[in-house]
Nucleic acid binder design. Sequence first.
DNA 1: CTTAGACATTCGAATATGCAAATATTTGAA
DNA 2: TTCAAATATTTGCATATTCGAATGTCTAAG
Lengths: 108, 108
Amino acid sequence: MPDKKIFKLHAEVCKALAHALRIEVIDLLQGGESCFTDILEETGGLKSNLSQHLSIMVKCGILKVRKDSRCNYYSLSSSKVAKACSLMREVLIENLKKEQKLHKELLK
Amino acid sequence: MPDKKIFKLHAEVCKALAHALRIEVIDLLQGGESCFTDILEETGGLKSNLSQHLSIMVKCGILKVRKDSRCNYYSLSSSKVAKACSLMREVLIENLKKEQKLHKELLK
DNA sequence: CTTAGACATTCGAATATGCAAATATTTGAA
DNA sequence: TTCAAATATTTGCATATTCGAATGTCTAAG
């Protein structure tokens, strides 16, 4: 049995992707770094909430922060995160298409 | 605001990756389809538990099932799932290395 | 038609996550 | 020094996930 610890760690990192707001943030940051206030403007919602999610993502290591005196700039820690995320999006789209096809079949 | 519904759906699919056992299953299935009993033998644990996780993965659309009279064969619905998963693993590994480096620095 | 093997489903309890509101911290400008 | 903007942290509560045990279903084989 190969050490199961790695699976747990791996899952921890993947949990960073498991929330709509966090996905939205990743999507946003594909375009480059962005500061807290700008992210909030895009996503909407409460500051405290966004702050919590961003800190989760930083802890998981999928985001980096750069702080200057006026604000905190967030960015993806690696383009691999964006890539993984968009692969999963493709999987989703493929599944939606399959479902749609199935519905059409049923209505024939 | 681009429809937020897609983020929710996207996150749902990503949730399939957010558990150690499920990651282990994905790892296993990179080698090709495998039946319930064989998966269980590798992962260990309770049947009911594995069954629950597999059904979550099927519902999310990241696994396919093929049933014959003797057993259920599970496989990845797309190689993209494996790819996304291993990208996230790379992100993890990179982060672990960074941490390790930081520790070394501190001990100098 | 009864049984055994292979899974699936259900249930209640434990744990983890997410949310909103309140409070705290930090930094530059007045 | 004081204030305001920009974020972080804490707290209590609501919801969601996970787990293990028990029970149910389905399909050959006998």
